[in-house]
Amino acid sequence: MEWIKLIGILIILIGFILKFDTIAVVIIAALATALVSGISITEFFTLLGEAFVNNRLVTIFLLTLPMIGISERFGLRQQAVILIEKMKGLTTGRFISLYVLIRQIAGAFGIRISAHPQFVRPIVNPMAQGAAKARYGDISEEDEDKIKAMAAANENFGNFFAQNTFVAASGVLLISGTLKSLGYDVPVSAISQTAFIVAIITLIITTIYNLLFDYRMDRKYGVKKNQKGDK
């Protein structure tokens, strides 16, 4: 009867199909599995508590999501757009390129910005959209989606290609350890210096790409009168 211990999987499957509350389904499945496995309710809650404590960093990450939602609900996006609209001459491409530079500088100092959910979606994308609307007025939904994609892509460029510029980054230590195991004595500073070159090349390429986007938008929509002096 060992197969009865798989009852948790069945409960999760049924719960997800019937669209019951996810957390409740998982806890009930875990409790059922514990009971059929001979684990008492007291032991079950002990294990559940230990798992919660051991993975508290994940829990903290999840708690930031409703905080971001509340911030958006009460005007974070609107204030970001208003701030950008006051900066004449700051185009979408220029702003996103500036963000890539900031992302790379933060990476060089080992400062981790919270990426897409906590930073790009509530702050970077609305500000990029605001820059476009301040320069062109209303734009098409298709171009709004392109700006969203640009904000997300440039976050990846700034993060991925500059994350090893910090000498104590996990990636740098992994590369150094792997090379040493293969007989190559390469200092972490050399790896970091190489990563700096890659980061600079990435910044140049992404800036050119973003400015070309501005050029295409200028040709498509023109520039509002109050922005022409900054063109």
Rank of each mutant, 00 (worst) to 15 (best):
V198R: 08
A80Y: 01
I14V: 13
I39G: 10
G130E: 03
I60W: 05
E85L: 14
S192W: 04
K86E: 10
V223T: 13
E2D: 15
S189W: 08
G137D: 00
F119N: 06
R103V: 04
M87A: 14
I84V: 15
K148I: 09
M1A: 09
L6D: 09
G8Y: 01
F16H: 09
A149H: 13
M67H: 05
L6G: 14
G107V: 05
L174A: 10
T92S: 06
G183Q: 02
I102H: 06
E72N: 04
A29I: 03
S189H: 11
E155M: 09
A115V: 13
L48I: 01
R112W: 10
M150E: 04
I200A: 07
V26Y: 06
I28N: 03
K228E: 07
I139E: 01
A131P: 08
S192V: 07
I28P: 03
Q163I: 12
L179Y: 14
P187G: 04
A168T: 12
I17R: 01
M67P: 04
A108Q: 05
D21Y: 03
Y215V: 11
Q129W: 10
A29S: 11
A168W: 12
P66R: 01
K180Q: 06
V167D: 09
G75D: 05
A80P: 06
S71M: 14
T207V: 07
A115T: 06
F95M: 05
F95L: 11
R56V: 08
Q129H: 14
L6Y: 13
M87H: 12
I84R: 08
T42P: 13
F45L: 10
N156A: 10
A149V: 12
R219L: 15
F52Y: 11
R219S: 15
A132I: 05
A162Q: 03
I123F: 06
V124F: 00
Y221P: 04
L83V: 12
S189M: 14
I41W: 09
L203K: 04
K19T: 07
N159W: 07
T46A: 08
G38K: 09
A169K: 02
G222Y: 03
L31A: 12
E141F: 07
I102V: 15
A32H: 10
I105W: 03
W3Q: 09
T207R: 02
L83E: 14
G110K: 09
A115D: 13
T59R: 00
A51C: 07
I9T: 13
E2Q: 14
Y221R: 13
M217F: 05
T33H: 07
N55H: 01
I204S: 03
N55I: 00
S170D: 08
I41P: 14
V167I: 14
Q227S: 05
L90H: 03
V186P: 02
G38Y: 06
Q129T: 15
T59Y: 03
T22R: 10
